[in-house]
Simulated scan of single mutants.
Amino acid sequence: MRVHHLNTGTMCPIGRRLVNGTGSIFQRARMVCHCLLIETNDGLALVDTGIGLGDIVNPPRLGPKWVRQTTPRLDPVETAVRQVEALGYSKGDVRHLLLTHLDRDHAGGIPDFPNAKVHVHRREYDMAVTGRTPAPKGRYITAQWEHGPQWSFYGEGGEDWFGFKGVRALGDREPDILMIPLPGHTLGHCGIAVRTKDKWLLHAGDAYFFYGQIQASPRVPLVLGMFQRRGDMDRAMRIENQERLRSLKANHGDAVTIFNSHDPVDYENCRCGQHQQAPAHARAG
């Protein structure tokens, strides 16, 4: 079974050198919405959904300030649902949406798959959907789930995974897709780990923004770093989890490929080698 790497929303803010670390400050940067389409034992699963068709039809719902700052391309061809269809599937084949968190550029495609179960950390749901925990004003776009999807919640704890505590995101039918709590960017932010034939993949969401942040000598372009700090709900936890990811890469880089949501370098490196999941008999246990 294959794991497809999809870009479900290109963003083109000004200041390429200060965002991507290359080129001129007068050029447009490139950021992506890196999602995964996974063939599982229980239908297709999407890790994050990027920008959705409803966002493209009605861009103001994304927030004028966010649209102005990020300059999204808003191309329907890039949406997850259109890419799923281009691969020969229907939207009904997507049974599970596994969300790293519920920010607008990760949850926009939820209504494009109305029958899919939405898997999210309970703390994220309590903040974004019910308001049980107050969220920063304007952080979440509630129109992206106003159709009332079927939610599935996960909490802290779970299995140990390279020193992280994970949860079986799809239960016993798919034991090799794990939700890994990585709070900081939001309080319920998670990574999603998928075991493939060759190694684990860890979609780290917005736990870091730039590929250089999990290298031995971490670095991040100026404006991208500022944008990251503005998005922090718990900066100390975000920094701590980046250090944990750095250690994971240093100590287990041969066993785990780590990538984030928006870095085009991470995305292109993954896209160059589409991954296959291990056969069921090899993944047991």
Score class of each variant (00 low, 15 high):
235 R>D: 07
190 C>L: 03
190 C>H: 11
222 L>G: 09
234 D>A: 13
191 G>L: 04
184 G>H: 03
213 Q>P: 07
236 A>E: 15
228 Q>R: 14
194 V>A: 02
179 M>Y: 08
180 I>Y: 06
198 D>G: 01
179 M>F: 08
197 K>V: 00
227 F>R: 09
221 P>C: 14
182 L>Y: 10
206 D>V: 00
229 R>E: 00
212 G>K: 11
233 M>L: 14
231 G>R: 13
226 M>K: 11
209 F>M: 08
215 Q>C: 08
212 G>I: 12
213 Q>H: 12
196 T>W: 04
232 D>K: 11
208 Y>G: 07
233 M>Q: 15
215 Q>S: 10
202 L>R: 12
213 Q>W: 05
182 L>Q: 08
235 R>E: 13
225 G>I: 01
235 R>T: 11
208 Y>W: 05
187 L>H: 13
200 W>G: 02
200 W>H: 02
201 L>Y: 05
178 L>E: 07
212 G>H: 13
211 Y>I: 05
235 R>C: 09
219 R>K: 14
197 K>S: 08
225 G>N: 10
227 F>I: 04
193 A>H: 03
210 F>D: 04
223 V>D: 01
214 I>V: 14
209 F>I: 06
231 G>L: 12
196 T>Y: 04
224 L>E: 12
211 Y>R: 12
200 W>Y: 09
237 M>D: 14
225 G>Y: 01
194 V>G: 05
236 A>G: 09
218 P>Q: 13
218 P>L: 11
186 T>V: 04
200 W>K: 02
185 H>T: 03
234 D>K: 01
214 I>A: 05
188 G>W: 11
178 L>F: 05
193 A>S: 02
187 L>F: 10
181 P>A: 05
211 Y>K: 09
195 R>E: 15
177 I>E: 03
215 Q>W: 06
184 G>P: 03
194 V>M: 06
223 V>Q: 07
214 I>K: 13
199 K>H: 14
189 H>F: 08
226 M>F: 12
212 G>N: 10
218 P>K: 14
213 Q>C: 10
229 R>N: 01
196 T>K: 04
200 W>M: 08
178 L>W: 12
184 G>T: 05
211 Y>V: 07
179 M>L: 15
190 C>F: 02
199 K>G: 00
200 W>E: 07
234 D>G: 01
223 V>P: 00
227 F>H: 03
181 P>W: 09
224 L>S: 15
184 G>Y: 03
197 K>R: 15
235 R>M: 13
224 L>W: 10
216 A>P: 01
227 F>M: 10
213 Q>M: 13
207 A>F: 07
234 D>W: 12
199 K>L: 09
210 F>W: 14
187 L>K: 11
235 R>A: 15
196 T>P: 00
213 Q>Y: 03
194 V>N: 02
205 G>Q: 10
231 G>I: 03
215 Q>I: 00
188 G>R: 08
225 G>P: 06
204 A>T: 09
208 Y>T: 09
229 R>D: 00
183 P>G: 11
203 H>Q: 15
187 L>T: 10
221 P>D: 14
182 L>H: 06
205 G>H: 12
198 D>I: 01
229 R>Y: 01
236 A>K: 15
218 P>R: 15
201 L>Q: 05
195 R>N: 08
229 R>A: 09
207 A>N: 09
189 H>Y: 11
216 A>W: 06
237 M>H: 10
211 Y>E: 02
208 Y>P: 07
201 L>S: 04
186 T>N: 10
192 I>H: 06
